[in-house]
């Protein structure tokens, strides 16, 4: 319930903030040498002359009922849920998002699995081998990882794996249903780029979390009970250390679902991030409003899911 209210507030705020921008959506509808009368006429046609509240109302209505843009004779109907119409691309925003979302979801999911495996795996190893070379290697990796910018790592990967060695073809996105092998080949590099950079933080979090839990009294009691080390590490230490990590991971994943702008651009992946970036360049407001809201929806949903998950993982916050 709270999540719905939050989404309403987010959508209103997004709508308002983009309308406050100095760029004039009506002016963008016709070319460079546009006469003021045409702009005014277009403004009226598109409804940008109406008060903001009314515009917002029409927008919200469109989400649930669909909406027809333009005037009779040259109108376009976008069925519900309509998130607007891009005059720049001459397409319904919803269908633009629908075609880009699977790409971003593919990127996010693969990267997430990889980074959790690398981050938690290396972090655990570092904590268990504290002070030894494994620890130094893992913490070294995490320092290097966080300091690399995405674009640098992405370009390096393309250079090494595509241009120099030719191990991989230049990434060209193909849907998983069309050709899973091509899909995988196109995504493997972006997955690793995103995973390595995020994993760096998770190595640290996991390592510190585990070391902290190891000092807990209940872990000492576990040892005093005679628990074998492996069982102690898994059922006592990891169990406790992973709770906060799951929470943060959920939010990070949702954030990634909102579009990986830089990575998608470098690897030429037609995802939400690239759509957003293009919209920024072209001042395509309807798309910007929509992608912002989609990203917000993901964050809000992730928050709710994490809350439920947290209660499941930690009996102390379980609601009775």
């Amino acid at each position: 319930m709270f999540a719905v209210v939050l989404l309403l507030i987010v959508s209103a705020f997004t709508f308002w903030i983009f309308s406050a921008l100095p760029s004039d959506p009506a002016a963008l509808t016709c070319g460079k040498n546009c006469r003021p009368e045409v702009i005014e006429a277009n403004r009226e046609r598109l409804g940008y002359d109406k008060p903001l509240v009314e515009q917002y109302g029409a927008y919200m209505k469109g989400i649930f009922a669909g909406r027809t843009y333009g005037e009779e004779g040259a109108s376009v109907h976008c069925p519900a849920p309509s998130l607007g119409y891009s005059y720049d691309r001459h397409e319904c925003v919803t269908s633009l998002i629908a075609s880009t979302l699977p790409v971003t979801a593919s990127i996010a999911l693969g990267a997430f699995v990889l980074w959790m495996a690398i981050g938690v795996g290396l972090g655990t190893l570092a904590a268990l081998k504290r002070g030894r070379w494994q620890d130094r290697l893992a913490t070294g990796f995490s320092v290097v990882g966080v300091s690399f910018p995405t674009f640098f790592l992405g370009l390096m990967f393309i250079m090494i794996f595509v241009i120099w060695t030719g191990i991989l073809p230049f990434p060209r996105y193909t849907g998983i249903t069309e050709n899973p092998v091509d899909w995988f080949m196109a995504l493997i590099l972006p997955w690793f780029v995103l995973a390595l950079i995020s994993a760096a933080t998770y190595v640290r979090m996991t390592r510190n979390g585990i070391l902290e839990v190891m000092n807990e009294e209940f872990v000492r009691l576990g040892i005093a009970k005679g628990l074998p080390r492996k069982r102690l590490i898994v059922t006592y230490v990891m169990r406790a250390a992973l709770v906060p990590i799951v929470t943060i991971a959920g939010l990070d994943f949702a954030f990634l679902l909102g579009g990986a702008l830089v990575t998608e651009s470098i690897f030429n992946l037609p995802g939400l991030g690239k759509l957003t970036l293009a919209a920024v360049v072209n001042s395509d407001l309807p798309i910007l409003v929509a992608t912002t809201m989609v990203a917000a929806v993901f964050i809000v949903i992730a928050n709710a899911v994490v809350d439920v998950l947290y209660g499941y993982l930690d009996p102390r916050v379980r609601v009775k």
Binding site: E217, G222, R316
Partner: peptide, 10 residues
């Protein structure tokens, strides 16, 4: 142990 509040696995 001394502190039963922290000695049991939560």
């Amino acid at each position: 142990f001394q502190d039963p509040l922290t000695a049991l696995n939560p």
